[in-house]
Design a protein around this nucleic acid. Structure first.
Lengths: 108, 108
DNA sequence: TAGCGGTACCAAGTGGTACGAGGTACCAGG
DNA sequence: CCTGGTACCTCGTACCACTTGGTACCGCTA
């Protein structure tokens, strides 16, 4: 599937939030996870900008831990604000996707 | 529902394409239609920029017709390239929305 | 021990898209 | 004549995913 980037705007951040909500994890692993999930073209640079934004907006708690196979990892976990933001994201997604699906099924 | 603008990026153009595909129509009416459909905050300026883009990209055929209740209207209809683009849009939407729904339903 | 591939992070700049604000103009009714 | 509805457009802004390029840690192997 080619070039989904425009369609991912506004949703990719929510996806990252959901992944972090599932378990405490770090940027490199999140990228791999997204690729697994079918977002094949999402690259590290993109994920890191999202993570920095989440941190800047106070939605995550960050913990640095050493790794045995490479440089130290920055683990991200949702805080209360993050969980709230995630709920809002899913509400918006539900709203938007249902309207679009309705439009697809012939309008009214 | 508040501020869906980021989530609409990349999908709004497809929605406009779908509306035009349903029947030949014009900018002002498309805006009203989107508002009806639940995209309440979409304003005329947004729709016009999309319509200009569609025209520039050669996806629509444009016909100007006088109106009895105001200034002349610019009617838009899909051409072959437009119909193809619309099909591509729905394929992408299907792809993206299914992956996101899967992520929502606990991952794998 | 030098180099390579995998792991892991970050920064600066680009391009596309929706939106805000404002302007023009046609028309009917009070 | 003036207001409100209809109908079009333009310019600037903000935001987001992406591109490109860089740093650095680690284990393996030639």
């Amino acid at each position: 599937m080619d070039d989904l980037t425009e369609m991912l705007k506004g949703t990719l951040e929510g996806c990252v939030l959901e992944i972090i909500g599932g378990e405490e994890t770090y940027g490199y692993a999140i990228t791999r996870r997204l690729n697994e999930l079918g977002f094949a073209d999402v690259v590290e640079g993109t994920v890191y900008t999202i993570l920095l934004r989440l941190e800047r907006n106070g939605l995550v708690q960050v913990t640095k831990r050493p790794s045995e196979v490479g440089p130290p990892r920055k683990f991200y976990a949702l805080n209360d604000a993050g969980r709230e933001q995630l709920a809002t994201f899913w509400a918006k997604w539900q709203y938007v996707s249902s309207r679009i699906d309705r439009l697809k099924e012939g309008g009214r």
